[in-house]
Design a protein around this nucleic acid. Structure first.
Lengths: 308, 308
DNA sequence: CGTTAGTAGTTGACTTAGTCAACTTATTTT
DNA sequence: AAAATAAGTTGACTAAGTCAACTACTAACG
């Protein structure tokens, strides 16, 4: 059960949005046709030879009501019927010229109403709005059951900066790491940028957002160091770390590295657990007093790769 | 007039969301009371002594309908009336115990319905959902006419990485700048991090997002260099650059710098225009062949500050 | 102070949008 | 060929809400 505060928030949004929609409807649709009828008209637009039942099923309208809507539209000369050749019970419907005109006028009204709603927004805000709407729509249409689309790919221009941002922010927020740590990360990354022979850095991208990273750096012909393994806290615990690790280790295999090691600190429990699951073993410990107030213990973990 | 494609998108979302809301309503409310009546009940909950008209005005309900709703609730013993002491026409309304129960049951139903709607989402997706909803709500409630809330503030842990990300991504995308440029930015920033005596770097934050940055670095007692002036392309042309510049120059005044200079490249037209508007003058040019394929011309611009 | 205008709430008559079930006609299944 | 099913029609009904006239009261003005 998702937590109640979120649900209340969503309900608040629902109420709010119902209001907005209500206002729009009122302004537009009370004009000549009620909403359901306008929707039937919209459904007919651009198609020819659709049947009443097809529309009914799509819009969820009662049979009797539908029949009367069709009659009314016929009386108003908005649509024309033709008996279906294949089934004499059905009629193929299509809009007449004035039906199209009426539909377009309704659409136009609706557009004007929406335009009024957004006319004070800057282009950037408009982008924000539509992208937020897409997010809502995508999340609430669980046609794609829920699988995050996680993409692991080599880094692109500028993204090393983002990796250092992730490190600096996360470790400061969670453990109070100092600027010295941030410096150490940035310096390492900028050196890596200039010399990454035999190494690579991957970005985990989730729905276009950067969620985390991992890197392999060459030490010597047989030895690689695993570095810059980080995951935005919002994306933790969803198997993305594992995907990153798999990518990095597969790369090591392909490059024929035999030994892989990494440096971490003892307080990173989740990471240590993952390392040991992949067969890494802690081989060295040393104190570090620079990065944070509490005494840290840096640890070196090693993994021997078996040849395939 | 905002462009039509966006409007159509928004209308699509409206239709879609109207559908979702419709489904929820149907499931819940057809039970004992229609939506408007449930809303009246909700309005009464937690308050005592509210009058019918107050509710009417808030919910936009017709007088006659309201009167009958109240009667029905009274018959069902959900509410009780008391004559208002100040005005013998009005009644002060309050829920009875069973009224509260009924309301809470309705809320509970609604919550369950929403929970069903979101039960396949991960916590992160749920965050995305509510934050997208907030965005929509905020943008469509133009109580704050439209002014972006731009906050200019000193950088926080990790954010220098983000600044380098902005540089790397923007200049690569727009002008094809190479990794060498990115390296140059990261290196400079990491050095600045360790020694920023007499300098500062500011972040422009828009709605919690990092939109851009500017920095002042000390050169000598009287001379400062303006660096790392960048703005995410989505936020350009909205006066944020100006705010950043004002902040930086005010800092220079406060620190008693007399000379400010900066290095830029000739292709950055918008920036050059801003510099000259603030009184900077181009004092030196030199070719740069490292950062991009085309021959770049680096320019030094200087500004003498007048003492106050 | 009394008149007038306005407000809170009530009531009856009405409308809109939609539902339900019975029915006709045609088609498909057995 | 009979039975079951589907498309569309029709009459009767209802829920939800609107409109206008009315009563009882209050506030504002001269």
């Amino acid at each position: 059960m998702a937590d109640l505060a979120k649900i209340e928030e969503i309900r608040r949004f629902n109420r709010h949005y119902a209001n907005i929609l209500g206002k729009i409807d009122q302004e537009i649709y009370h004009k000549p046709y009620p909403l359901s009828e306008a929707r039937v008209l919209a459904e007919l637009y651009g198609k020819t030879g659709i049947t009443a039942t097809e529309i009914r099923e799509k819009l969820g309208i009662d049979r009797g009501y539908m029949s009367r809507i069709i009659q009314k539209f016929e009386d108003d000369k908005l649509i024309a019927k033709k008996q279906a050749p294949s089934d004499k019970r059905q009629h193929l419907l299509h809009l007449t010229g004035s039906g199209e005109k009426v539909h377009l006028a309704l659409v136009d009204e609706a557009n004007k109403e929406v335009a009024k709603m957004i006319d004070s927004l800057t282009p950037h805000q408009l982008d924000q709005l539509t992208s937020a709407m897409h997010t809502v729509e995508k999340l609430l249409t669980h046609e794609e059951p829920q699988a995050l689309s996680v993409l692991i790919r080599p880094f692109q221009p500028g993204e090393l900066g983002y990796v250092s941002y992730l490190h600096g922010r996360l470790y400061n927020k969670a453990y109070g790491f100092s600027e010295l740590f941030e410096y150490y990360v940035m310096k390492g990354l900028s050196e890596f940028l200039m010399d990454r022979q035999g190494g690579e850095l991957w970005i985990a991208e989730v729905d276009g957002e950067i969620a985390g990273s991992i890197a392999i750096a060459r030490v010597d012909g047989h030895t690689a160091q695993l570095r810059w393994f980080v995951l935005d806290d919002r994306f933790q615990g969803q198997g993305i770390g594992k995907s990153l690790m798999n990518t990095a280790l597969a790369f090591c295999q392909a490059q024929n590295y035999r030994h892989i090691f990494l440096w971490t600190v003892h307080i990173l429990e989740a990471a240590r657990h993952l390392y040991s699951k992949y067969g890494f073993e802690c081989t060295e410990q040393k104190p570090n007093a620079e990065w944070t107030d509490q005494e840290l213990i840096e640890e070196r973990w090693d993994l021997e790769l078996v040849l395939h």
